[in-house]
Nucleic acid binder design. Structure first.
Length: 668
DNA sequence: GTGTGACAATTTTTT
DNA sequence: ATTGTCACAC
């Protein structure tokens, strides 16, 4: 990550601005840090400085954008100070922080502190059910419509009851009731409720203000209004709040992020010390010039200069390709070629694209070409069906009142509690206002069922109760207990039966195994089962997983924020892809430009840009034009290349080689 | 209640 | 092209 000049002890190797930021420990601080200016390094030094000055590690809170970034920050601070000190700090995302707060104080709001988190497909599944229940299936509303409306509403501080569209509102309100009845919170609820708890209850506010004396927020340009509200509740006088960000890298407007949070930080926390980091230590002058040319076209930005410290550098290559398949092959070939001579590593390369679906082609070709790769955040590990199944079992074992999970595993794998029985169960719960688990143990419910149904329910209850106690005493041998449970319900063979290919079988089996590994690992680190589940719900990847995998990184532009790679390929630079056609419709084209800017500034030494004439979409070939953003780039630092021409040249070379080869063969 | 195959839709980006 | 949904046969 962001490497500044030099290395070494605390104040060594920092430039003036960085040093100033590191030393500004009291009161509000705003660090405007352009891409590659050693932002992370500065933040880490600053925290180390706080500790050196005598701050208690447990009084330090650092909020990052992803859990991965959190782990990394903790790690790097740990490298500079006592490792135990790093362990005692709180380093987490806003969402994890809110879970922490609510596990203590949800009771104040009438919620149970052992709530579970409804995320990903569990949440969408629930919404889908409700759409059907309210007769919305025939109309054209989708789970997505409801989910995004609910999220928008919550993040802007309005009740779901005020959604304008009648049907969406009805489903949304029902969704909210359902969550509540099932003792579950979604991502947005975490923020909403934590903020509310702090705002309404002095007791909670005092508790957390007493806990955190120094707060740092990274990627501040991507915080939304609700998160700002939360910060204002959390950080009391003397406002020891340090925020770090770059308005040019604001790419989460669609999630409610407000650039005004960073542009008008002084509004919320008066008289902040402002520090600007403008020396870029990451990229060559060539790459940075291209980036600067692009971002200059961005309206309403903080005017700032980003200075290259690495002069010159290889020009940025702009490649035109006939189709997406050729594009993937070309990237593969280019990487091979680069590695052939020098002693580079696969990890030095990254391929960045706009959407997850674009990853597929590249992935497919890489597999074919035997280029090792690692996918970051494509289909999140924890959102795979088999993984969610296993997690649901664990959730129910941790807390059988976790209804969302309970309903998921009720008949997974099939055990004779089908749709009919489930329907009856839900009816019963709604009528009597009880939770599913209670109903299933209740004679007045099981009495309504057929003998077979009642038997199936009874043995399910026994299964869960049996393993519940088994798990409680398991300590760090939960992995074994989980294995036994899966054995008992014959989960794997059921799962395997539904697989089409051997490869799929392999992957799914592996995924199930990895849950066990991740669980055992979490236990070893002293986490509780519930904490493990929280992490799984809030985090896209199991940590160790990603670190171990090696190879070329395949990643979306959004997910690439905060990362850097020696060589970057930015593919699919076509009108309609980047900028995405949808953003053109929604009038958020500027954000797409920033997205491209983020992509460009990930590159350290070498950058390749590419676009295709044809791209396959839904199995259909579609004609594409080069992205209009490419017109904003000057010529000075760019080399335009054409795949077809190069292939022809290459073919000619081959002919020549063949010619000499044939000659040699003749002479021999 | 469960498993299969035909059929239809497909939502950027993520905690 | 891929994925999920639905109707139908067991």
């Amino acid at each position: 990550m962001g490497r500044g000049p030099g290395k070494g002890s605390l104040r060594a190797g920092l430039n003036e601005a960085q040093a100033e930021a590191v030393q500004s420990t009291e009161g509000p601080v705003l660090i405007l840090a352009g891409a590659g200016t050693g932002k992370t390094r500065t933040v880490i030094f600053r925290i180390a400085n706080l500790l050196e000055k005598g701050a208690e590690p447990r009084n330090i809170l650092a909020v990052t954008f992803t859990n991965k970034a959190a782990c990394e920050m903790r790690e790097r601070v740990g490298g500079m100070v006592r490792r135990e000190a790093a362990e005692e700090m709180t380093v987490s995302t806003f969402h994890s922080l809110c879970v922490r707060i609510l596990r203590v104080h949800a009771g104040l709001l009438g919620y149970n502190t052992n709530f579970s988190i409804a995320a990903g497909s569990d949440r969408d599944g629930l919404i889908k059910q409700l759409i059907v229940r309210h007769g919305g299936a025939k109309q054209k509303i989708q789970a997505w419509d409801v989910a995004s409306a609910v999220s928008r509403q919550k993040n802007s501080g309005m009740p779901v009851g005020e959604i304008p569209d009648d049907l969406i509102r009805t489903v949304a309100m029902s969704y909210q009731r359902e969550l509540r009845a099932r003792n579950a919170l979604d991502f947005d609820d975490l923020l909403v409720l934590a903020e509310q708890a702090l705002r309404e209850f002095k007791e909670a506010r005092d508790y957390w203000r007493e806990r955190y004396h120094y707060v740092t927020v990274d990627e501040f340009q991507d915080t939304n209004g609700l998160q700002m509200d939360l910060l204002m509740q959390l950080v009391g006088p003397p406002h020891n709040l340090c925020v770090v960000g770059d308005d040019d890298q604001s790419i989460y407007g669609w999630r409610g992020a407000q650039v005004s949070n960073i542009l008008q930080f002084g509004h919320f926390f008066p008289d902040p010390k402002v520090v600007r980091l403008e020396n870029n230590y990451r990229s060559t002058e060539a790459i940075l010039s291209v980036a600067n040319e692009l971002i200059r076209n961005s309206p309403s930005r903080h005017e700032k200069t980003l200075r290259a410290t690495i002069r010159g550098g290889e020009k940025v290559a702009l490649m035109a390709l006939p189709g997406d398949e050729e594009e993937a092959f070309w990237v593969a070939g280019e990487i091979r070629r680069a590695l052939a001579g020098k002693n580079g590593r696969w990890e030095d390369f990254a391929v960045l694209f706009r959407t997850n679906t674009h990853i597929r082609k590249v992935e497919q070709i890489f597999r074919q070409e035997e280029i090792p790769y690692r996918l970051v955040g494509a289909q999140s590990f924890f959102d795979r069906r088999e993984v969610r199944d296993v997690l649901a079992y664990l959730q129910v074992l941790a807390n059988p009142r976790a209804d969302v999970a309970l309903l998921r595993i009720l008949n997974t794998p099939p055990r004779g509690i089908g749709a009919n029985t489930a329907m009856l169960l839900l009816e019963h719960c709604r009528e009597h206002g009880v939770q599913s688990w209670a109903a299933m143990k209740d004679e007045s419910f099981t009495g309504q069922l057929s003998a077979r149904g009642a038997g199936a329910v009874r043995s399910f209850v026994e299964l869960i109760e049996g393993f519940s106690s088994r798990f409680r005493g398991a300590g760090d041998r939960v992995g074994e207990a989980l294995h036994e449970l899966l054995q008992e319900i014959d989960y794997l063979s059921w799962l395997m039966r539904s697989c089409r290919t051997e490869e799929e079988r392999e992957q799914r089996r592996e995924a199930v195994g990895e849950v066990g590994v991740a669980l055992t690992d979490a236990m070893k680190r002293g986490r509780s089962l519930q904490e493990f589940l929280d992490e799984a719900a809030l985090d896209a990847e199991p940590e160790e997983e990603l670190e171990q995998k090696s190879g070329v990184t395949l990643i979306t532009l959004h997910a690439s924020k905060g990362l850097e790679f020696p060589v970057v390929f930015l593919v699919g630079l076509e009108e309609g892809v980047l900028p995405h056609w949808r953003s053109t419709e929604e009038g958020t084209r500027d954000e797409e430009r920033r997205l491209l800017y983020v992509g460009i500034t990930r590159a350290q030494k070498q950058l390749f840009l590419s676009y295709c004439a044809l791209r396959r979409k839904y199995g259909e070939l579609v004609r594409c034009d080069p992205s209009s953003f490419l017109e904003e780039l000057g010529e000075e630092w760019i080399v335009e290349r054409d795949y077809v021409e190069e292939m022809n040249a290459l073919a000619d070379d081959d002919d020549v080689n063949d010619f000499f080869g044939n000659m040699r063969a003749l002479l021999d």
